[in-house]
Design a protein around this nucleic acid. Structure first.
Length: 212
DNA sequence: AGTTCCCTCTTGCACGCGCG
DNA sequence: CGCGCGTGCAAGAGGGAACT
């Protein structure tokens, strides 16, 4: 937690509240307007504060967005829990579906800031990329472990299992990043089709190969 | 060119708290 | 109570970018 404001003053009760108001106002704004239109004075106005006050707590809008990104990154507990609990061998699809659903719920909850985070990370802003990677790594790592365990350690190297986990994670994330109302690629496919396909692919990766 | 908005800086005021 | 001090915030001004 930040304890010093930009003037070097210790942040007390009032300052803490003001900082929270600015963060809440920013979160509200990014869900209703394009991120590149977001300004410090706009955030301050939305929080019913003078624009100068914004600069008492943040250097710029990016610092606010980074904080919101980091905050969203801390909310992956439910996702990790789905991957950490023991999966019954005959219920892989059931667990895969639960994971995919949890992933969508996570994105539904944090879509605005996660999209901004990914856009900036893709645009080469290292701080956003670091937060994205730090958030994804525990999930990808767990998927990779399960892939390798299912496929057999002799059949698949750590490296290849991890690469497959990255691919399937990226695909699920890209689909979850869409707004549910927006069709992807084809008007014929709806969200349920895509979600089912994600579950199917994940189930295939996490099931022992069929010999024959 | 004029206007509007954004950002930054300086300055000062209001309030609360501790201390003698 | 009176005072000093720390904390929080805004008024006002000015430079600069973007828009009309």
């Amino acid at each position: 937690m930040v304890k010093i404001n930009k003037d070097g003053q210790a942040i007390g009760r009032k300052g803490k509240e003001t900082r929270s108001r600015l963060l809440a106002a920013a979160l509200e704004l990014i869900s209703t307007m394009a991120a590149d239109k977001l300004t410090a004075s706009g955030i301050a106005r939305a929080a019913s504060l003078a624009s100068q006050t914004f600069y008492l707590y943040f250097d710029d809008v990016d610092e606010v967005l980074l904080h919101l990104s980091a905050h969203a990154a801390q909310d992956t507990g439910e996702l990790l829990a789905e991957l950490d609990q023991p999966w019954k061998p005959d219920a892989t699809r059931f667990h895969a579906e639960r994971f995919v659903s949890a992933f969508y719920r996570y994105w539904d909850k944090h879509r605005a800031i996660l999209n901004i985070r990914n856009f900036r990370a893709d645009g080469g802003q290292a701080a956003f990329a670091e937060i994205r990677n730090a958030s994804a790594l525990p999930i990808v790592g767990r998927i990779a472990e399960r892939i390798r365990a299912a496929q057999g350690e002799n059949a698949l190297s750590d490296r290849d299992a991890f690469a497959r986990a990255v691919i399937v994670y990226s695909a699920i994330e890209r689909m979850a990043a869409r707004y549910a109302s927006i069709h992807f690629v084809s008007d014929e496919l709806d969200s349920d089709d895509l979600k089912r396909a994600e579950t199917d692919i994940l189930t295939l990766l996490l099931s022992p190969p069929v010999r024959g």
